[in-house]
Each structure stands twice: as structure tokens, then as C-alpha cells.
Design a binder for these strands. Structure first.
Length: 548
DNA sequence: TCTGGGGTCCTAGTGCCC
DNA sequence: TCTGGGGCACTAGGACCC
């Protein structure tokens, strides 16, 4: 806990949806929902316009469509989000070397370590400047929380949403936290919240009043102690720039439950291969293989096996995963399968050979079991990402395309052999024109995401920075335009806002991390993405629609 | 047409070794 | 020789986060 509010938490506002709105002028001001579009998809991020209809993250997509039938429904485009995220993280690193990314859209920054803030006014100035820079470079808005600890900075940024800045002055935290619901504290989810409610505790103040012993009795040692400290506003966790991954995993939910054992075995092997691909991409090998099975009734079980040494051999992981599967009863059907590797070690060739020899097999060359007939056939339960099974080209809603005559655009919807494209770019002044093509139109090809902001603008900013660094205006937030939505007198006002966060979208606070978070952390950005079989890009059945 | 995907951390039970 | 306890590794599941 610091004497000055020099820990900053940045949370981009409705990140995925906002990026889509920036990229697609026709969607600005309209409800946009990003997530899985299959029958079992859920919402990753909803724009603030969509939240007014009650749509929020983690909601089943079918429910979202009922609540907001006229929204634009798009699949996530992680390559775009990653590139915007890199721009934002670069701005954060201009403030301090101590930047701790939590996901694509969220990070902590230690302003003191960067020498840009030492008290409340300088921290506020840095936060305001950051928000202005983010808007200039990416065209998007982010909310900033400033406090003397990570926990409080995060709570502050939550209060600041959307598009604001809140600073919590050290010394006021207990009073501030007391009236807040227990769910405000990190680590208190639905289960713990309910547990506490049954024990008569609904506010943070009541937690603090209950005492450490009582919380330990209710929640166990680690959780109880941690929660009690948080209720008092105590949090000594440092901002950590580098974190080692502990596990790598992949999983698939199937559109229709799988029953055929041969098919299930095939999918497990496929997942094992994908997992190893990710594992190698991160430069690791691992010792414990984990199989995850979610059954037809949503019950989930995991089985794991620890090898004698770490491996990144796909054949070894496949074999282990299949052994684990042998011990699982799948009668009744399986809706999800997953394969993971934990107990990670830095990759070494020796590990690979040692393990392969141990298993006494011709490791990597061993072929997988044959593709069952059911694949793409009778059961029709193709996971969203699979490609190559169906010959027809797929055009996921929201994806970028390029037409030889009309230029860049994005897929508005597709079905019955046709794809509808809106031709517009991030800089377009008005919504672009819509045209429909046959799905196999040779003039239409997948495109790359375009920058949300004219690169020249970002370049101009860099030049200004350099000029400033050369001696001109000092790093003083007041020299730059203050962000319009900065909460006036927020230092004081936060405590009054015990009901803050309520509103049409009151759901999970920062929904937009979703799959992207993990994807980014386990897949190095610099690694070439190309891989045979085209199994990488997320896509969804072409039946997806959007109606901006 | 209810409930994704990729993670982390914690707890509890069990078996083994000393 | 038997027993108990501590420490550790492993396994499985749950809660939580983004």
C-alpha cells in the first residue's frame, strides 16, 4: 500500500465491440455483440448500446439475440484486437517499465517506477494524458483507475467506466469500500458471494467487521485471509512485468453432443495436436497431461497423468490423452473436450528424446487414428474453428474481405451460397455500400484488418513526443486537452457511489478479455501463424447474420 | 435451442517415504 | 516391529478472472 496513488489500472471500454465499431463506420452508435455465433456461442463483449438491451458478456448468444434482435453479431477478430492492444501497451510502456498486462484490454502500470508520478496531481495528469494518447492513437476510449494498490486501482477504473478517470486517495479506502457489495472485491464470484450472503455478509464493511477468523472458518485459510485484508483495503501486491505461463490448453465445444466413441477419440487427438502446437509456440514442454470432458448434462470432469519427464511430442501427448479418455464414461454424450499440458518447463530437445524413448515408440511419426465417418457427417457437430471439412468457402460475419473492384470491406452476413459485404473502411465518413456475391466469387478474398486510425495521425503524435523530449513542453498533463469525461472531484466522489456500476449493462465488470486473453498469453505475437491445415483462424458457420 | 475458451489458484483426498 | 505424523507429489474438482 502506497502513500500516493501511483498505481494505474487501465481498462479499455467494451474493447472488442469498440474496435469493431471503429473499424466499421456503419456500426457506430449501434448495438454490436462480439462472440461465438454457433448454437452454443456466448457473448464475449457487448457495446454499450447493446448493454442497454440487457446484453452482457458470458450470456448465451441465443439469449442475446432474443434481447437485441437488431444488433450486429460478429465473430471476434483477434488479429485486429492484438494489434490495437500492442499500440496501447506501447503507450503504457512510455509511462513506466513496470507494465503488467492482464489481458488484451487491461493492464496495471507502476507510475512511480516510471518516474512520471509521485503524488495525486501528477498521477492524475499522467492518467489523463494516457487516455488522450490512447484516443489519438487507436481511436478508442479507455477508463483509468489510480490508487495506492492494485486492488483499489482496479476498483477505481471500474467506477470510471465508461471513458473516465477515478482516483482514490490513500487513507480513504476503508471508508470507501465499506458500503460496496462484497462482489466488488476480486476473488468474490457467484459462489463465494452466495456463501457470504448466507452468513449475513453483503457489504465489504460487514466482511471487515466479521474478522479474519470468521472468514477463514467460512472460506478456508488462503481465501479467508486474503479477503479480510482486501476488506480493510490492504493489498501489497507489486506490479509484475513478466509472468511465466503455468499451463497451455485447448478445448472445443461441439454444436451437437458427440456420442460416437471413435469420433471422440479422433477429436481428443486433434486437440492434443493443437495443444502441442501452442505448447511449442510458447517455447515450452510439459509434464502433466490433462483431459477435460464436459458431458451432455454439463457436468465436467478432468483426468490427468504426470509423465516421468516433460515432453512436447505430439504423439506422447496424444497417447496420454487417449489413455485418460479410456477411463471416462462418455455414454450419454459429450459437449466439450479439452486437452491441456501443465507442469511446464523450458523446451529442451533432450526432454523430447528421453520421453519418446521411455514410451518405447516411434514418437512423432506415429499416425493418428483414422478420421471417423461421422466427421462432418451424420452428427453434424463441427466445432466452429474447423475448416477444410466443408469445401464451400466460409465468410464469418464481421471478417475482413477485399474485392478486386470494390476494395476493402467486411462480411455483413452469409448463407444460401451468398455473402453480403459492406464496403467501408475505418476512415469512411459515412456507412459504405452493401453488395452481395456468390460465396465462391473469385474476385472476393479474405482481407487483413485495416488500422483504426490513420497511421499519419499516430506518426504526428510520435513526432510531437520527440519534440517534447527534446526540450519543449514538460510532461504536464495540463498542456494537453483534458479528457471530457474525467470525473470531477472524483477523489472524494467515489465513496458516495456505492451503487456505481449499476445500469443496463450491470454484469461482469470487464467482459472483453475472453478468449483473447489466453490466446495472447500463450501464443507469442511474433510467431508465424501459418500452419498446415488452416486450423488456426477462428471462424464460425456462415449462417451467422448481422443486421446493423 | 443455456451456459465459450484459456487461464490461475486453492482445497481436499490419497499414497508414499522417512 | 508397529504406529503416527509431517512433508511431498499427484489427482480431481471448484471458483474465479478476463
Amino acid at each position: 500500500m502506497r502513500a500516493a496513488p501511483t498505481i494505474l489500472h487501465l481498462d479499455m471500454d467494451a474493447f472488442f465491440a469498440a474496435a469493431e465499431q471503429a473499424a466499421k463506420p456503419s456500426l457506430r452508435g449501434k448495438p454490436v455483440i462480439v462472440g461465438g455465433l454457433g448454437p452454443r456461442g456466448v457473448v464475449s463483449t457487448a457495446s454499450y448500446e447493446a448493454r442497454r438491451f440487457g446484453v452482457h458478456s458470458a450470456m448465451p448468444m441465443a439469449q442475446a439475440r432474443r434481447l437485441c434482435p437488431n444488433g450486429a453479431y460478429l465473430v471476434p477478430r483477434f488479429s485486429l484486437y492484438r494489434s490495437v492492444s500492442e499500440q496501447v501497451m506501447a503507450l503504457l510502456r512510455e509511462l513506466s517499465p513496470l507494465v503488467e498486462p492482464l489481458s488484451l484490454d487491461e493492464a496495471f502500470v507502476d507510475l512511480e517506477a516510471g518516474g512520471v508520478a509521485f503524488d495525486a496531481p501528477s498521477a492524475r495528469a499522467a492518467g489523463e494524458r494516457l487516455r488522450a494518447d490512447i484516443r489519438e492513437v487507436t481511436g478508442l476510449s479507455g477508463s483509468v483507475g489510480l490508487a495506492g494498490s492494485k486492488m483499489l486501482a482496479k476498483i477505481a477504473s471500474e467506477q470510471a467506466k465508461p471513458d473516465g478517470l477515478v482516483l482514490i486517495r490513500p487513507g480513504t479506502e476503508r471508508e470507501l469500500l465499506a458500503p460496496m457489495p462484497v462482489r466488488t472485491l476480486p476473488g468474490v464470484g457467484p459462489a463465494t458471494g452466495e456463501h457470504l450472503r448466507r452468513a449475513g455478509m453483503t457489504t465489504v464493511g460487514e466482511l471487515a467487521g466479521a474478522g479474519e477468523d470468521e472468514l477463514v472458518r467460512l472460506l478456508g485459510r488462503a481465501h479467508g485471509v486474503a479477503l479480510y485484508r482486501m476488506a480493510l483495503g490492504l493489498d501489497d501486491r507489486a506490479v509484475v512485468a513478466e509472468r511465466d505461463a503455468k499451463s497451455v490448453s485447448v478445448e472445443d465445444t461441439f454444436d451437437v453432443d458427440l456420442h460416437d466413441r471413435t469420433r471422440i477419440r479422433f477429436e481428443v487427438q486433434r486437440l492434443a495436436d493443437r495443444c502441442v502446437e501452442r505448447l511449442r509456440g510458447s517455447g515450452h514442454s510439459g509434464r502433466t497431461i490433462v483431459l477435460k470432458v464436459r458431458r451432455y448434462d454439463f457436468s465436467t470432469l478432468t483426468r490427468s497423468e504426470t509423465l516421468r519427464g516433460p515432453t512436447d511430442d505430439p504423439a506422447v501427448v496424444r497417447e496420454a490423452a487417449l489413455r485418460l479418455l479410456d477411463a471416462v464414461d462418455t455414454t450419454g454424450g459429450v459437449r466439450l473436450l479439452g486437452v491441456g499440458v501443465s507442469g511446464l518447463a523450458d523446451y529442451t530437445q533432450e526432454d523430447l528424446f528421453a520421453q519418446a524413448a521411455e514410451e518405447g515408440r516411434d514418437a512423432a511419426e506415429e499416425p493418428r487414428e483414422g478420421v471417423p465417418e461421422a466427421l462432418g457427417g451424420a452428427e453434424g457437430d463441427t466445432p466452429a474453428h474447423r475448416s477444410g471439412v466443408v469445401a464451400e468457402r466460409r465468410w464469418p460475419a464481421g471478417s475482413d474481405v477485399r474485392h478486386t473492384e470494390y476494395g476493402a470491406g467486411w462480411v455483413q452476413g452469409s448463407g444460401v451460397g451468398r455473402v453480403t459485404v459492406r464496403f467501408e473502411e475505418p476512415g469512411s465518413e459515412r456507412p459504405g455500400r452493401v453488395r452481395t456475391f456468390l460465396v465462391d466469387d473469385p474476385e472476393l478474398a479474405p482481407g487483413e484488418p485495416l488500422p483504426l486510425v490513420d497511421p499519419e495521425r499516430a506518426g504526428a503524435r510520435a513526432a510531437r513526443r520527440e519534440a517534447a523530449a527534446a526540450g519543449a513542453p514538460a510532461r504536464d498533463g495540463r498542456t494537453e486537452e483534458a479528457a471530457p469525461a474525467v470525473r470531477e472531484g472524483a477523489d472524494r466522489a467515489v465513496g458516495e457511489g456505492s451503487s456505481a456500476g449499476a445500469g443496463p449493462g450491470a454484469g461482469r465488470s470487464s467482459p472483453e478479455g475472453a478468449a483473447g486473453a489466453a490466446q495472447a498469453s500463450s501464443e507469442p505475437a511474433r510467431r508465424p501463424k501459418s500452419r498446415s491445415g488452416g486450423g488456426g483462424a477462428a471462424s464460425s458457420p456462415g449462417s451467422a447474420t448481422s443486421s446493423p
